Simulated assay, not measured.
Amino acid sequence: MAQQAFEEIVEDFEFLEDWEDRYRYVIDRGKAMDGLDDALKVPATKVDGCASQVWLHPQTDGGTFRFDGDSDAMIVRGLIAVLRALYNGVPVGQVGAVDAPGELARLGLNDHLSAQRSNGLRAMIERIRAVASEAA
């Protein structure tokens, strides 16, 4: 059920054999992503449970889920970009059905992120699901 943008990341990861290259790829995705406007970096958009500062600004206009986000850590910005590829464009009512842990496991991220980063990633996914559930 992954979005095409996420499938492209999976294909790119398969091409990159070295984890250093994969980390660089994730960081580059984060660098390419537009930052979140400072006016949106408020307590309501801040994600608790992350080691770094993380903000997610979800939108559910027209029944489709999408979000923008930002972080003060480059690898986390990259993870936000990966999550955007997974969730942006999904109908709001189907966001909860996205198997984010399963999809991310296809990238092997679970085995290569620190415990703190994994907890932060889970916190971002929980926030995305909660917002979509409220909007559905």
Rank of each mutant, 00 (worst) to 15 (best):
D72L: 12
R122P: 03
V98S: 03
P91N: 04
A51Y: 09
L121Q: 08
Q59W: 00
W55V: 00
L40K: 09
M124P: 11
M33T: 13
I27Q: 14
G102C: 13
V47S: 07
A100F: 13
A100S: 15
D99R: 01
R122A: 14
A105K: 15
G62I: 03
H112I: 05
A39I: 14
V92T: 14
R127G: 01
P91Q: 04
K46T: 06
Q59R: 08
D28K: 00
D111H: 08
D68G: 04
G89H: 05
G30K: 03
W19D: 13
H57C: 09
E103H: 00
G35Q: 14
G62L: 10
A44N: 01
L121R: 05
N110T: 04
G69A: 00
R122S: 14
W55H: 10
E134R: 11
P91M: 06
V82Y: 01
V82F: 05
S52T: 10
A132T: 02
D70M: 10
A85W: 10
G108P: 12
G30T: 03
V92D: 12
K41L: 13
R22C: 10
V131M: 09
G78M: 04
L79A: 07
V90Q: 06
W55C: 02
R127M: 05
Y23W: 08
S133I: 00
P101A: 14
A105Q: 15
N88A: 03
M33F: 07
F65E: 07
A115T: 13
S118C: 00
E103Y: 03
R106S: 08
V54W: 05
L121E: 04
P43C: 10
I75M: 10
D61M: 04
P58T: 03
L79N: 08
G35N: 09
R22S: 09
M74C: 02
T45I: 03
K31C: 01
G78P: 08
D70K: 08
P101R: 10
Q94H: 13
E126C: 10
M124G: 12
H112L: 00
R66H: 04
P43Y: 09
A39Q: 15
L104S: 06
D38Q: 14
S52G: 07
P58D: 02
V98A: 05
P101N: 14
S71V: 00
T64L: 13
R29A: 15
L121G: 05
I80T: 08
A123V: 09
A85M: 06
R22M: 06
M74T: 04
N110S: 08
D37I: 02
L104R: 01
D68P: 01
V47E: 06
L86F: 15
L36D: 12
G49L: 05
H112M: 02
L36G: 13
I80M: 09
T45Q: 05
S114Y: 00
A73T: 01
A123E: 05
D61I: 01
S52P: 07
P91A: 11
A51W: 08
G49T: 03
A81P: 09
Q94G: 08
D72C: 11
M33A: 15
A132N: 11
D37K: 01
R129T: 02
L40Y: 14
Q53R: 07
